[in-house]
């Protein structure tokens, strides 16, 4: 089901498959149930409306899952058992936002004879605001 990537399919500058997701309060609530993170800033609209954020926001790890989906689509099993990720959460995603996750291969480096792809990635909302930015490394075999 999840195959290993073929090194020949990737080179410096290769684009990763873009993932576009629409965030809804229903999905945020489901994510809270699945992860166990019931922080009211995510699920209690009345509570969140009274905070400086002015409303509920999605869990950062929910949006980060979209980046992991992109990496899984691109690199399959190599992402699942050896992928590395380092990201910064720059802004909050809100219900009804459309999040576009994109990435590219910045370089390919050999480590002990195994090629590794170094990738940059970004999750942006429909206004072009960056929600998450970061890097990922995955072996190409």
């Amino acid at each position: 089901m999840f195959e290993r990537p073929r090194p020949a399919d990737f080179h410096q500058g290769s684009s990763l498959p873009t993932v576009v997701k629409h965030v809804t309060q229903r999905e945020i609530n489901l994510y809270a149930e699945a992860s166990g993170d019931f922080n009211p800033i995510h699920i209690d609209e009345a509570f969140a409306a009274a905070t400086p954020l002015g409303g509920t926001i999605a869990h950062g790890m929910l949006i980060l899952a979209y980046a992991s989906e992109m990496m899984t689509r691109a690199f399959g099993q190599s992402w699942l058992d050896g992928g590395r990720l380092s990201v910064r959460f720059k802004a909050a995603a809100r219900p009804e936002d459309t999040i576009t996750t994109s990435g590219r291969v910045d370089s390919i480096e050999d480590r002990e004879g195994i090629p590794h792809a170094h990738c940059s990635l970004e999750c942006c909302n429909q206004k072009g605001e960056v929600i998450i930015t970061g890097e990922a490394v995955v072996k190409l075999q």
Binding site: G60, L64, L80, G82, L85, V87, F89
Partner: peptide, 13 residues
């Protein structure tokens, strides 16, 4: 409090 950054390494399925 804000989740500012995250690093992860997946070692095994």
């Amino acid at each position: 409090s804000i989740h500012a950054s995250q690093e992860l390494e997946f070692l095994k399925i």
